[in-house]
Measured scan of single mutants.
Amino acid sequence: IDVRFTVNGLDVTVRVRTEEIAERVKELAKNGVDWREIQRIAEELNK
């Protein structure tokens, strides 16, 4: 599942395995978490 969001004007796409992880990623993006941090968290959750 590809999750797309915009952080500080940057369009970011993170690929995740499940809808649940996708929701977590969207939540982080909404809360203004840095995209590199979101990427790292997504990689952890995908394991």
Rank of each mutant, 00 (worst) to 15 (best):
D34W: 08
E27G: 07
R4M: 13
I21V: 06
E43M: 11
V12W: 08
D11C: 11
G32V: 06
I41L: 07
K30P: 01
E43T: 10
V3E: 01
K47T: 11
V3R: 01
V25I: 15
V3N: 01
Q39H: 06
I1M: 08
E19C: 08
R17D: 05
N31Q: 15
R15W: 15
A22Q: 04
N31M: 15
V14W: 05
I41Q: 06
R17C: 06
Q39M: 15
V3M: 06
R17P: 05
R4Y: 11
E19M: 14
D2M: 13
L28C: 04
R17E: 09
R24M: 13
V7E: 05
G32L: 08
K30N: 11
E44L: 09
R15S: 09
E27V: 10
E23Y: 11
R36N: 13
V33E: 05
N46V: 02
I21K: 00
R36G: 11
N46H: 03
E44K: 07
R17N: 13
I1L: 10
L28G: 01
R4G: 06
V16S: 02
V14S: 00
V33I: 11
V7A: 09
L45Y: 06
L28M: 13
G9M: 04
V3T: 02
R17H: 10
R4F: 12
R15V: 10
K47E: 13
R40V: 08
R4K: 14
D2F: 15
I1Q: 05
R24G: 02
K47R: 10
A42R: 01
V25M: 06
D2H: 11
W35N: 03
E27D: 09
W35R: 04
E43F: 09
I21S: 03
V33N: 05
D11L: 15
I21H: 07
N31P: 02
I41D: 01
F5V: 13
R15H: 13
L10C: 06
R36P: 14
R36A: 14
L45H: 03
R24E: 05
D11S: 13
E19Y: 13
V7C: 05
F5A: 02
V7K: 04
G32T: 04
E19D: 09
K30C: 08
I41Y: 07
E23V: 11
I1S: 04
D2E: 15
K47F: 12
E19F: 12
T18P: 00
V12G: 02
E44V: 08
A22G: 08
E20D: 11
R4C: 12
I21A: 06
E19W: 15
T6F: 09
V33C: 06
A29V: 15
W35P: 10
D34T: 12
N46W: 07
E43V: 08
I38A: 01
R24D: 02
L28I: 04
E20C: 09
N31I: 11
N8W: 04
V3L: 13
F5W: 09
V14H: 01
T18S: 10
I21Q: 06
R4N: 12
V25N: 00
E27Y: 12
T6N: 12
V3H: 02
Q39I: 15
I1K: 04
E23K: 13
V7N: 05
T6D: 06
V16E: 00
G9D: 06
E37Q: 09
K47W: 12
A22T: 01
A29K: 05
N46I: 02
F5P: 00
V16R: 00
N8L: 07
V12R: 06
R4I: 14
V25P: 00
I38G: 00
E20P: 04
I21D: 07
N46T: 03
K47S: 14
D34E: 11
R17S: 10
I41R: 05
V16W: 01
R40W: 07
N8S: 07
G32R: 07
F5T: 03
T13H: 10
V25R: 00
F5M: 11
A42H: 01
L28Y: 07
D2S: 10
V33G: 04
R4Q: 13
I38H: 00
D34N: 11
I21R: 00
A42D: 00
K26G: 04
V14F: 11
F5H: 02
I38V: 06
E19I: 13
I38R: 00
I21G: 03
R17T: 08
I21T: 03
L45I: 03
E27W: 14
D34I: 07
E37T: 13
D11Y: 11
N31K: 13
V7L: 09
K47H: 14
R17G: 07
L28N: 01
R40S: 08
I1H: 07
Q39L: 15
F5I: 15
V33F: 09
V12A: 04
E43G: 06
R4D: 06
G9K: 03
R24V: 15
E37M: 09
A22I: 02
N46E: 04
L28Q: 02
R4L: 09
I41S: 03
E23W: 12
G32D: 05
G32F: 07
V7M: 09
W35C: 04
T13K: 07
